[in-house]
């Protein structure tokens, strides 16, 4: 499978955007309900940690109630922008033979998912952004990043998305070898909840867990951009973080190429 010229690739993406937007509008109520669940989660953790902070005389590990409000709201936004769902679909794709038409197209199936993902994010962001502002205001969040922190946040966010997308797509390839990947996906999800900072800022976790989260890609997939814009990192730490993201992206790309080639060979062997 050779790559298409860039111009054609752009056309493919545009067509996919239009189709995807129409699709999402057809399921707008499902989308609205899904968003409701998404928004409830930061509020729950926010309330739990605010309660803890209050009982500890105002702050926990350097986080005040207002810091928690900023952390969990920004985390929700970053998590919403970076998460992927494709690894939940792979089992079904492989088992039902849905990969066959995708493989016939002269374009890597990754592009299909990427276009789908980005469209979905753009669409839902129009709701997530105002809600985030509402949360920030309601809970009186303390969020005042300096200009360089905002500037660093943008690449950190884009890299986080790229890294998460590539890694989770690679994880999904497991479906070529195993018929039931639900258990793997669940275990991965567990790791994400703890190690990406969803449950609590990583600073509040035990030292050992923090090290694991930083050595593995989890911190760089979500927590890092959040910490950056919250102003909790020094310029040096931000630079190191961006480098770590790039290294992981490189590794993920390598893994993906290798896994995809081996996986597709296996798929055709089963299908034939």
């Amino acid at each position: 499978m050779r790559g298409l010229p860039l111009r054609q690739l752009v056309d493919v993406y545009r067509a996919k955007f239009r189709a995807e937007i129409a699709l999402q509008f057809a399921y707008r109520w499902a989308l609205a309900i899904w968003l409701l669940g998404l928004l409830l989660q930061p509020i729950v953790y926010l309330v739990v940690w605010t309660t803890v902070a209050r009982s500890q005389g105002g702050t926990v590990g350097g986080f005040s109630a207002r810091d928690f409000a900023a952390y969990f709201t920004i985390f929700m936004v970053v998590n919403q922008l970076t998460f992927t769902w494709h690894y939940w679909e792979f089992e079904w794709r492989v088992r039902q033979g849905f990969f066959s038409p995708l493989l016939l197209r002269p374009i890597h199936p990754l592009h299909n998912d990427l276009a789908e993902n980005v469209t979905f994010k753009l669409l839902t962001f129009t709701v997530v952004a105002p809600v985030a502002v509402l949360l920030l205001v309601t809970f009186n969040a303390s969020l005042n990043p300096s200009p360089w922190q905002v500037l660093a946040f943008l690449p950190a966010l884009v890299f986080a998305f790229a890294l998460r997308f590539l890694l989770e797509w690679t994880l999904a390839l497991a479906a070529f070898w195993l018929t039931r990947v639900t258990a793997i996906n669940q275990a991965y999800y567990l790791a994400v909840v703890f190690l990406s900072g969803q449950m609590a800022p990583l600073e509040l976790l035990p030292e050992a867990v923090q090290v694991i989260a930083a050595v593995l890609p989890f911190r760089w997939m979500v927590a890092f951009p959040v910490e950056t814009v919250l102003g909790r990192l020094s310029p040096m730490e931000v630079a190191v973080g961006l480098a770590a993201q790039l290294i992981w992206i490189g590794l993920a790309l390598g893994l993906l190429r290798f896994g995809w080639r081996a996986g597709v060979r296996r798929y055709s062997a089963v299908g034939a």
């Binding site: 739990v48 803890v52 009982s55 500890q56 926990v60 449950m199």
Partner: peptide
Amino acid sequence: GIALGGIAVVFSQTDQLG
């Protein structure tokens, strides 16, 4: 695991929640 882990993390910082 998620539920108990969450409680463990919270109670590593406090001894009572509300």
